[in-house]
């Protein structure tokens, strides 16, 4: 028969069913004959039940999900303003690339193209769209239109994200 001092440190694990079989048998044999340790086990078990039923009365505030969403919403908005910036830079890059591509299409030098372009605009301004450079105006006009439509589409989408964020909050 083991002493109380030997058995006592095992009672907590015994309650939790975390003892190996040998230790469990040892504890059970002791509890059969020791009323003091049996009382302690009963008291520890009662404490656990009291703690568990107390815990069940503890409830988080009902608005906790909203609080968390609100707090996270700030960081989400940061992400969205970054997205907005990405969209603008991407649009800008696409626009610049398109213009450069258009400008470098003819084998002529950039300066010559720009000169022709300026000349075309001036001539157009003087109501000469039927001149030899009129097709340049049409191409560039269409190009500008494409860039404008792309920018507006992305901008609308970005604004939509931000708006849904506000509604969501």
């Amino acid at each position: 028969m083991q002493s109380c001092e030997f058995v006592e440190p095992m009672l907590s694990a015994y309650l939790d069913g975390e003892l190996a079989k040998d230790d469990r048998d040892c504890v059970e044999a002791h509890l059969e004959v020791c009323a003091r340790c049996q009382r302690l086990v009963d008291a520890l078990r009662a404490d656990d039940h009291a703690l568990a039923s107390w815990a069940r009365t503890l409830a988080a505030p009902a608005d906790m999900p909203m609080r968390v969403l609100n707090a996270l919403g700030l960081s989400r908005q940061e992400v969205q303003s970054r997205r907005l910036a990405y969209v603008y830079f991407a649009s800008l890059a696409v626009g610049v690339a398109l213009v450069l591509a258009a400008v470098s299409l003819p084998a002529a030098s950039l300066a010559a193209i720009l000169f022709h372009f300026a000349l075309a605009i001036i001539r157009a301004l003087f109501a000469l769209p039927w001149s030899v450079h009129a097709e340049w105006l049409v191409v560039l006009g269409a190009l500008c239109l494409v860039i404008l439509v792309l920018s507006l589409t992305f901008l609308r989408r970005a604004l939509h994200w931000t708006r849904s964020e506000v509604v969501w909050r």
Binding site: A55, L58, A59, A60, M64, P65, V68, L69, L72, W168
Partner: peptide, 17 residues
């Protein structure tokens, strides 16, 4: 956000206690 809300609802008692 809906997934986040559901997770908070499911685990808020556990975390709060």
């Amino acid at each position: 956000p809906q997934a986040i809300e559901t997770i908070v609802r499911n685990y808020q008692s556990f975390v709060y206690r």
